[in-house]
Amino acid sequence: MSNPTDIVTDDIAPLAPTAETPAPRTGHFAWIDLRAVPGALRDAVVQSAIHHRIDGIVSDDINLLGDLPPTVRRVLVRSGDADEIIDTASVDIVLSEGGDGAPAVAATVETGVHVVVSDADTLRDACEAVRRTPWTVLTFTDPTKIPLEIVIAAAENSGGHTITVVNDIEDAEIVKLVLEHGSDGLLLSPRSADDVATLAEVITPSTDRMELTELTVTKVEHIGMGERACIDTCSLLEKDEGCLIGSFSTGMFLSCSETHPLPYMPTRPFRWNAGAVHSYVLVPGNRTRYVSELQAGQPILAVRSNGSVREVRIGRVKIERRPLISVTATTDDGRTVNVIAQDDWHVRLLGPGGSVNNVTELTPGDRLLGYAPTESRHVGLPITEFCDER
Rank of each mutant, 00 (worst) to 15 (best):
P373R: 03
T111F: 04
R228D: 11
L350Y: 05
G160T: 12
C387A: 08
T328I: 06
S257A: 08
E173F: 04
L282G: 05
C230I: 05
D43Y: 14
V339I: 09
P70Y: 05
T139M: 14
G80C: 08
R322E: 00
L362C: 00
V115S: 15
D121R: 15
S192W: 07
G275V: 01
R42M: 01
D171I: 02
W272F: 07
T139L: 07
T198Y: 01
D43G: 15
I152S: 04
L76F: 02
L294T: 05
A172E: 02
I314Q: 08
L294K: 05
E173D: 14
A341R: 11
T21C: 08
A44Y: 05
T374Q: 07
L179R: 11
L324I: 01
A197G: 09
S90A: 10
R132F: 05
T136I: 09
L282K: 06
L95S: 09
E258T: 08
L368V: 01
D333M: 10
I223C: 11
P299Y: 13
V91Q: 13
V178D: 11
R390N: 06
V115R: 10
S118Y: 09
S279D: 10
P17Q: 15
I54H: 01
G251Y: 00
I93S: 04
G297M: 05
V327T: 08
E110Q: 13
P38N: 03
D344N: 12
V46N: 03
P299E: 08
A36L: 15
V356L: 14
A102S: 14
R348G: 00
V166E: 00
G159T: 10
I383H: 10
M265E: 13
R131D: 10
P69S: 10
E149A: 08
P373W: 02
H260V: 12
V309T: 01
F248Y: 12
N3D: 11
I152P: 06
T213I: 11
T207F: 10
I231T: 04
F253D: 00
H378R: 00
P382Y: 06
V165P: 13
G112H: 03
E214H: 03
A13K: 12
G242D: 03
D10E: 14
D87L: 15
S305G: 04
H378Q: 04
E173Q: 09
E128F: 15
R228T: 08
V339R: 06
V217Y: 03
A154E: 09
S59G: 11
P261R: 15
T204G: 04
L76P: 02
V327I: 12
A40S: 15
E110F: 07
A30W: 02
A154T: 07
L123R: 11
V379T: 11
G315M: 01
S305K: 04
E227W: 13
L138M: 03
V113Q: 13
T122F: 08
V291I: 13
L236Q: 09
S206G: 01
L301W: 10
L350A: 05
G354D: 00
L138Q: 03
G80N: 09
E221G: 06
I150G: 11
H161I: 06
T133S: 15
C230Q: 10
T141K: 06
G307Q: 01
